[in-house]
């Protein structure tokens, strides 16, 4: 009797947990995209209103700024000055990595070196970026080396501290496992040490990147002979606010491209083994 009752019970509709999870993830993604679009519309509205309130001479409309940006790109100035700024930023970054990474390695690996560097690196990291910009100009004057030094000084402490944290985060049990299976120090460095510090290095790069661009442009505003900051200063002296904002606009677009398309993508690719990266890729 019981068997018959069980047999007669209507079959439960087939459920696919994976498909359900994908649907939920898609809904969440759509909601988030909607909010991002709303945020941009709100920003546009506030800008238009501000422009109407202050007058377009003081705060040009988004359209005027866009036209000015198109003009800058068409004139050819954009490529020359932008590439100058980009090169200086990356050169500063390279110097920071060359100095910061070995210091970070020593700090993470040996307690003596940690004691030696810790306070100096912490202090260097808390000095305001404007101080580095002014200092670099005093040391190098109106040359390309000023912005490079400023970027390097701002970025190096971040890189050192993050690499040190990465080295200290290495799982000792994985090192013991590798030794028990007779792996060489070189293999342990490549397969255990480097993959451990990669997330920390990415965090350092993203953090530095946001600050480094600003410092580079600021140093050019004060004493550059080319670059985005130099152009912003020139336009300011001509009181062409639309052009100042256009340079800023182009600058932001470029930064977003680097941040979203290069850094975020390569981070997701390199760290695809982490559960949070996999779930965000759903």
């Amino acid at each position: 009797m019981t068997d018959q009752l069980i047999g007669a019970a209507p079959a439960a509709p087939p459920t696919d947990p994976e498909a359900g999870a994908k649907r939920t993830a898609k809904r969440r993604r759509l909601r988030l995209t909607g909010l991002v679009i709303l945020g941009w519309i709100a920003l546009y509205g506030v800008w238009e209103y501000g422009s109407w309130w202050f007058g377009s001479r003081l705060l040009p409309t988004p359209y005027e700024v866009l036209m000015s940006a198109v003009e800058i790109v068409e004139s050819g100035n954009f490529l020359t000055d932008f590439s100058a700024s980009v090169l200086k930023t990356f050169a500063g970054f390279a110097v920071a990595a060359a100095v910061g990474a070995p210091i970070g390695y020593l700090m993470g690996r040996y307690n003596y070196w940690r004691a030696f560097f810790h306070d100096g690196v912490t202090i260097a990291g808390t000095i305001p970026a404007i101080v580095y910009a002014v200092l670099s100009l005093i040391v190098f004057g109106l040359s390309n080396l000023g912005p490079i030094l400023a970027v390097a000084l701002v970025s190096a402490p971040y890189i050192a501290l993050n690499v040190a944290e990465g080295i200290r985060g290495v799982d000792k049990s994985l090192v013991t496992m590798s030794e028990a299976f007779g792996r060489s120090p070189q293999q342990i460095r490549r397969e255990v040490l480097i993959p451990t510090i990669v997330p920390y290095v990415f965090a350092a790069i993203r953090m530095c990147f946001a600050v480094a661009w600003k410092v580079e442009a600021l140093t050019e505003v004060f004493g550059g002979r080319n670059g985005v900051g130099f152009q912003i200063r020139t336009e300011y002296q001509l009181y062409d606010i639309a052009a100042v904002l256009a340079w800023m606009f182009l600058f932001i677009v470029f930064m977003l491209i680097i941040e979203r398309l290069v850094l975020a993508k390569s981070e997701a690719r390199l760290l695809s083994w982490r559960p949070q990266e996999r779930s965000s890729a759903l």
Binding site: L174, T176, M177, A180, F181, R183, E191, V192, W273
Partner: peptide
Amino acid sequence: MGYVFQDPRLLPWRSVMKNMMYV
């Protein structure tokens, strides 16, 4: 020598097969 530990001690950033090949 081969070693099996109390905990698995696998490299989290390598696939199962790559963990096997690592040693």
